[in-house]
Design a protein around this nucleic acid. Structure first.
Lengths: 334, 334
DNA sequence: CTGAAAGCGCTTACAG
DNA sequence: CTGAAAGCGCTTACAG
């Protein structure tokens, strides 16, 4: 271990109280002692012990973040944004990978509590009553990202999924498409599943296009499920000129399968995704998609959390703007 | 704040020492008191304060990880592996995003020191003397991932880049290619740049193929630089039937440009990448590439670090196996 | 089997 | 302007 505040005090011939004061820029010492102390600190290479500080200040300058999967393209962008602001405002971030597993999540929540984090960001998953209870009991600020809860009053930052899905579908319609298939996310997912389906259906309805079971299929947001869904759609034999996939990964899967079947995108088939992950730009051809400002969402969530930590006042939820990134997978139907 | 060990002790009518003992499964109490204490703990919803524990134990059960960019596909995989093992072995991980910025990195190192992390994993960047000095001064275990240092004796886990590049090039040669271009990583990068160039050149040499300046171009590992490099190669007019790109992102860029120029892959041009990121599987056509076991590397690094933390003995560096993932971007030349 | 006490490295009234 | 002392929530000899 390095030198402690005691060592510094002794060497500088002052009390630890004085050293502590200059360390924290508090008043109560002459310019001369300040200089002396600062010099000794430098000489000894003294570093304050944040753990000891945390114990007494009841603040650890650390926040916890929970993701279903840290390595997903989605989570890593959001994490990047969170980390950026946290660092700017002198906080560290502990990452937790829940695997969408209830037990694991509860365990993380407990650990985060024991480690006395100052706040928590909970992302992309349904806030169960269990989670809510322990979060509530921890009595620290919590921000939800890409998820929300009607029942539990944590502020959130997210895109309006239903609205965004409506726009994506409408965009296709405005290009002239009427036979529009949808590859949805996980069945029953109330966060990124159902709302996007609703957006799709409402756009269809508003433009007088009947919803067809045959043109609708569930995936699980992942690439492989996109491939499978596309195959299913093709096998059903129902004609369609465009598909709206509820994630870029699924859209890319659909793209691959189209390619394998010799279907030209966008000449014979238009595809629009959702997320605007890096792969959207890198796919061949580049994917037209709905963009969520993930990095910004991470930043905003961290800002909201830190504001709550610092001021104690509850912050307002925020709906972030989505947008349609026009690239090369959508064209007018033949 | 929740109840402390004192509250528990009072309510259970024992001393805090006893509570501490049952908490830590140490001997020294009757079955009866144990039951009593456990019951009170449950009743009060008592959670130990890890900060107080850390202060006295000189162990925080926390490790720090430094990445150039947390949101890169590369870093997030490694992070996932690290987090997985850390959690399994009761440690938390603090992530740091250095932006490959010296000042920022030094700041993180300082914070990690103040927060008394038990160990550090340093990834994908050159270990400068400055970094080494403060790391050394912290006197805690350090593991390097995807980087290494001849001068400074920290154990590392990485793939043999030169060897892997040799294999990739050799693979192309064995398919019958003789005119093989290379899109390299960043010029002067001693970690993932130069070694891969050397591997490429040695394979060429071993198979009696002269190295041609015209078929070599630098990128910076990113997608856009891959696009630019491919354009440059095409503009130079020197014929080639295959390209080895030192990253999947650059390979994907090359793929896009080939597509834009109406060059069929793999019929007219073969491409092999490096990394085996998710996009390799998702590209059209799927990218043949060199795989590094990123998740496993993260896991192994965490295991090595935790072993050093727990036993105090220095662990051996590890070269991880690379492999060539054959997909659909390489064929025999016309 | 059990408890009183010291101590981890700090901060913060309090007193001077 | 400065220091002695209490205390944050724990663990761990030490003594019984």
């Amino acid at each position: 271990m390095g030198p402690t505040i005691k060592d510094v005090a002794k060497k500088a011939k002052v009390s630890v109280a004085t050293v502590s004061r200059v360390l924290n820029n508090q008043p109560g010492y002459s310019e001369k002692t300040k200089k002396k102390v600062l010099q000794v600190i430098k000489e000894m290479g003294y570093q304050p012990n944040a753990i000891a500080r945390g114990l007494i200040n009841k603040r650890t300058q650390t926040i916890g973040v929970l993701f279903p999967s840290v390595s997903s393209l989605f989570s890593s962008k959001v994490l990047h944004g969170i980390e950026h602001i946290a660092h700017e405002r002198d906080h560290s971030v502990i990452v937790c990978n829940t695997d969408t597993d209830g037990k694991r999540t509860m365990k993380y929540l407990q650990v985060l509590g024991e480690k006395q984090v100052d706040g928590i960001i909970f992302t992309s998953e349904v806030l169960t009553e269990d989670y809510y209870r322990v979060l509530k009991a921890m009595n620290i600020p919590v921000i939800l990202v890409s998820t929300f809860s009607l029942r539990y009053p944590f502020p959130y930052v997210k895109v309006d999924d239903k609205h965004a899905a409506y726009h994506a579908t409408e965009y296709l319609i405005k290009q002239g498409h009427r036979k529009i298939a949808m590859i949805s996310g996980t069945e029953g997912d109330e966060i990124a599943g159902t709302p996007r389906i609703e957006g799709y259906r409402e756009a269809l309805r508003d433009y007088g296009i009947p919803f067809q079971e045959n043109l609708f299929v569930f995936g699980d947001f992942g690439y492989r499920s996109g491939c499978a869904a596309m195959k299913k759609l093709l096998e059903r034999g129902e004609e369609f000129t465009a598909v709206f996939a509820a994630s870029d990964e699924m859209a890319t899967g659909a793209l691959s399968v189209a390619y394998q079947h010799g279907i030209k995108v966008p000449d014979q088939l238009s595809i629009i995704g959702y997320d605007n992950l890096q792969i959207a730009e890198m796919s061949v051809p580049p994917l037209t998609t709905v963009a969520q400002p993930l990095f910004e969402m991470g930043k905003l969530a961290a800002e909201m959390l830190l504001t709550m930590i610092e001021t104690g006042v509850t912050v307002e939820s925020r709906i972030m703007p989505h947008s349609i990134i026009e690239r090369q997978t959508v064209a007018k139907p033949l």
